[in-house]
């Protein structure tokens, strides 16, 4: 067991615990913070795997930008926490069963006897001047140019979708139109009716 092993186990256990806490945490702000923690732990694992660039991007983009925005949204929405707990007990057996099957299958199949050093050879050690970033850059615009373009298109679609769902208001939204309010005339709302006065009967 080397230092790398110890580091790996620390990061992995942190990621798993954080992942579980995202689901279990009662407060949704806590859930988001645990998700941030899970991202940090995964970034640590990726660095151990020599994927420095991806790890840094994960921290910069996801933790720095995406999750911060997400946190704002969660805080602003002020979610009602009660409905989340509803049906927890009722659905627990099904959830436990599915969890048991998926984890059981994974543990059965993914292990050192199938992914050990006999099946997967040790990757050749990198030279001192090896750069993961340069490697990534050289394949992304050559071998992976087509998926890269499609991914770009996917992001464009997401932007257009988000704008068209939020920007175009539905026609019957109850919102004040200031111009209309200012232009209001008395005759629009007040109608003077001439009622003949009646004589007192008593």
């Amino acid at each position: 067991m080397t230092e790398l092993h110890i580091l790996f186990y620390i990061f992995s256990i942190a990621a798993i615990v954080a992942g579980v806490m995202v689901v279990v945490a009662k407060n949704s702000v806590h859930s988001v913070l645990f998700l941030v923690f899970a991202f940090f732990a995964m970034a640590g694992v990726w660095i151990l795997l020599n994927a420095e660039f991806l790890a840094l991007i994960l921290v910069l983009v996801y933790v720095g930008a995406v999750m911060t925005l997400f946190l704002f949204v969660v805080m602003m929405l002020n979610l009602d926490l009660e409905p989340r707990k509803e049906g927890f007990v009722r659905l627990l057996p099904f959830a436990a069963l599915i969890l048991f099957i998926v984890i059981g299958l994974t543990v059965m199949v993914v292990g050192p006897e199938r992914f050990g050093l006999t099946q997967v050879p040790v990757p050749a050690p990198h030279l001192a001047n090896y750069s993961n970033t340069a490697d990534l850059g050289s394949v992304i615009y050559t071998n992976y140019a087509y998926p890269f373009e499609v991914a770009g298109m996917l992001l464009l679609t997401a932007i257009v979708a988000a704008i068209c769902l939020t920007h175009r208001p539905p026609k019957n939204r109850k919102v004040q139109d200031v111009a209309k309010q200012v232009a209001v005339k008395r005759d629009d709302y007040v109608q003077l009716v001439n009622i003949p006065s009646e004589k007192k009967t008593t």
Partner: peptide, 15 residues
Amino acid sequence: LNTLPLYTMIAMWKT
């Protein structure tokens, strides 16, 4: 890329 626009097209009927 196929399903993302479909989700949006369903939600476009906002009323």
